[in-house]
Write a protein that binds this DNA or RNA. Structure first.
Length: 561
RNA sequence: GCGCCCAUAGUUCAAUGGAUAGAAUGAAAGCUUGCGGAGCUUUUGAUAGAGGUUCGAAUCCUCUUGGGCGCACCA
């Protein structure tokens, strides 16, 4: 990557610069090499002089000039200039960009980054059995899958896991509902049970009683109901994962980690990390760390979610010696995670250090539009269905086979949803606009898919007309397209490092726009034009980059649409 | 009550403390002999308010206003 090369050059240039080694070190940690938004500021730009001058108490422009002189001549650039308050701008030779283009193949950008050799476990989606798969799960899945693919692409070995609750009151509410309303779906009966639990003392008692029975596993009828429900639930989730393009390496259930968690907390109690509350519950006093108190084992001696999460960490590490454990949840759990991770820092310090909590915002729908007649919450699958219907309506007049149409509907709908989730920084709420998400123009998944498809048909035309891709004859001046294509590896690395797929989304959207612009200005396939082979090769490079990029977001490309 | 997060063009989003705050969409105007016009070009328009730190603040600090979330036995 060119950015790394520039960094090395700068490092070398300031090696025998005035100041102490410690000062130099800290400057090297802080400085950055960026692609400036304004192209008149060069292809790459660094703020090293601004950082150094601050530490040295010198004029930044003078420092910049000095560094520029130290760098001297280098074939990579045709020009270096000092600009503004003291930026050093690098203008890269076209030859470099063309050489990069030549190396764009289907592995372009792969495993170049910083994750090489690392073992990462990533936990996302996390629906609970017998409950609905809701929009939050859809968000978690989109984020988790994309990050997984980015880490893998950067060279990490990734284990995808999904942690789900299969015991407790939630399950009891659903089973209680199922007993009362045999023919209703699990999602429905759960809602029914949950409502009854809140509203009727009698029902509440029954559900608590039932919860014990489920736990004891003594009643064959209840056992059967539970087993069937669990199986059906998991099958149902599996269908959704297939559609979304996720394949988990392991499903971990709450029941598998409860005892482990309890033991960890009991040991922690002996070590005085935890303490006993008034009524016998085992608690962690978060106030010592500026947080709040949470219960890890309740007064009945049962481990809570907190304890189970400790068990989960140990369980995960037992099966896979990870370097990093990434957990993705909605951000309403942020404060909870702070306390739990702080406690983990005391009882499982090594694992706590390796754990990274990433939280996403809510997917909000335009008011009224989606709430169905029954007033139920919108589920993840009904969202997918609704978007599919809209896409279906949109392409109904195309001359395509039924089979082709179905493929397009699914790819475009999923692409639209994933794009909407991933296009902005994780953590903030998303206002989901149905029409915008499936729009073929502007800021959307389908726009990228369309740009891909159109480029693809250009290549098909080239094939028909016998124009072969070649970089032998290159134009005198290259365009933004060649330059932008070369940024791809850097963008992926940044997305992975910062756990932010939106950098990639923004990049691909810009790239698609630039390609569309190129396409509008140049005739790509033209037998009589000596530059046509080059343009075909450039189009092929765009196609591969776009395909890889979309794949990293979990979005499929289409040959026709 | 306490804590955490958030506030940027009409709208939806960008911007490791850096250069003239970028896109998309909307609105207005234009482009088509040439591959999928579902495209391209141009114009329009914003940092919630008040202080402070800094050579430099949308970004850091304080206060105000307006939102979201969380605070002992749910997950």
């Amino acid at each position: 990557m060119i950015k790394d090369e520039i960094k090395k050059i700068i490092e070398k240039a300031i090696k025998d610069f005035t100041g102490s080694p410690a000062l130099r070190e800290s400057a090297l940690r802080e400085f950055s090499v960026e692609i400036p938004g304004d192209k008149s500021h060069g292809d790459y730009s660094t703020n090293i002089a601004l950082i150094l001058s601050k530490k040295l108490g010198k004029n930044p422009r003078e420092v910049a000039e000095e560094i520029k002189n130290k760098i001297g001549k280098n074939n990579l650039f045709y020009k270096i200039e000092v600009a503004g308050p003291g930026f050093i701008n690098f203008f890269i030779s076209d030859k470099y960009f063309i050489d990069t283009l030549k190396n764009i193949d289907k592995n372009y950008g792969k495993a170049e980054g910083s994750e090489r050799g690392r073992k990462i476990i990533i936990d996302y989606t996390d629906p609970n059995i017998l409950k609905e798969f809701h929009i939050g799960h859809l968000m978690s899945n989109s984020v988790g899958e994309s990050l997984s693919r980015i880490f893998e692409f950067e060279g990490a070995t990734v284990k995808r896991v999904c942690y789900q609750s299969d015991v407790g009151m939630g399950v009891a509410k659903a089973i209680w509902g199922k007993i009362k309303k045999e023919n209703e779906s699990w999602g429905e009966v759960y809602a029914f049970g949950a409502k009854a639990f809140e509203e009727s003392e009698e029902s509440k008692k029954e559900i608590i009683e039932l919860n014990k029975k489920i736990f004891e596993k003594g009643d064959t009828k209840i056992n059967k109901l539970y087993d069937e429900g669990k199986k059906e639930s998991l099958k149902h989730f599996d269908d959704i994962y297939k559609k979304l393009g996720t394949k988990f390496d392991e499903l971990i259930f709450e029941s598998q980690v409860a005892d482990l968690g309890k033991k960890i907390v009991e040991k922690g109690l002996k070590d005085r990390i935890f303490e006993k509350g008034d009524n016998g519950a085992v608690i962690f006093k978060g106030e010592k760390y500026g947080l709040h108190t949470r219960v890890f084992i309740n007064s009945e001696g049962l481990p809570t979610y907190e304890a189970k999460d400790l068990g989960l960490a140990k369980f995960k590490y037992g099966g896979y010696k990870y370097d990093e454990s990434v957990v993705i949840t909605a951000n309403e759990q942020n404060d909870y995670f702070k306390v739990m991770l702080r406690a983990m820092g005391e009882v499982l310090p090594e694992l706590a250090k390796k754990t990274k909590h990433i939280s996403h915002g809510m997917l909000r729908l335009p008011e009224g539009k989606m709430s169905s007649r029954t007033g139920k919450v919108i589920t993840g699958e009904s969202l997918i269905e609704k978007v599919e219907e809209l896409v279906k309506e949109k392409i109904k007049d195309r001359e395509l086979s039924e089979k082709e149409k179905n493929e397009i509907v699914e790819a475009v709908a999923i692409g639209a949803i994933k794009y909407s989730v991933l296009k902005q920084s994780i953590g903030n709420d998303i206002i989901y606009d149905f029409d915008k998400s499936i729009s073929f123009e502007g800021d959307s998944g389908p726009y990228l898919q369309y740009a891909y498809t159109r480029a693809n048909s250009v290549l098909e035309k080239a094939k028909r007309e016998g124009v072969k891709a070649s970089f032998r004859k290159t134009p005198k001046e290259i365009t933004r397209l060649e330059k932008t294509l070369s940024y791809f590896p850097e963008v992926i690395e940044k997305s992975g490092k910062e756990y932010e797929p939106h950098f990639l989304v923004l990049y691909l959207t810009e790239l698609a726009g630039i390609f569309n612009n190129y396409y509008a200005k140049h005739k790509i396939v033209d037998k009589k034009d000596e530059y046509s082979p080059y343009r075909v090769a450039l189009t092929a490079a765009f196609l591969k980059t776009m395909k890889n990029g979309l794949w990293l977001l979990g979005i499929n490309t289409l040959e026709k649409m």
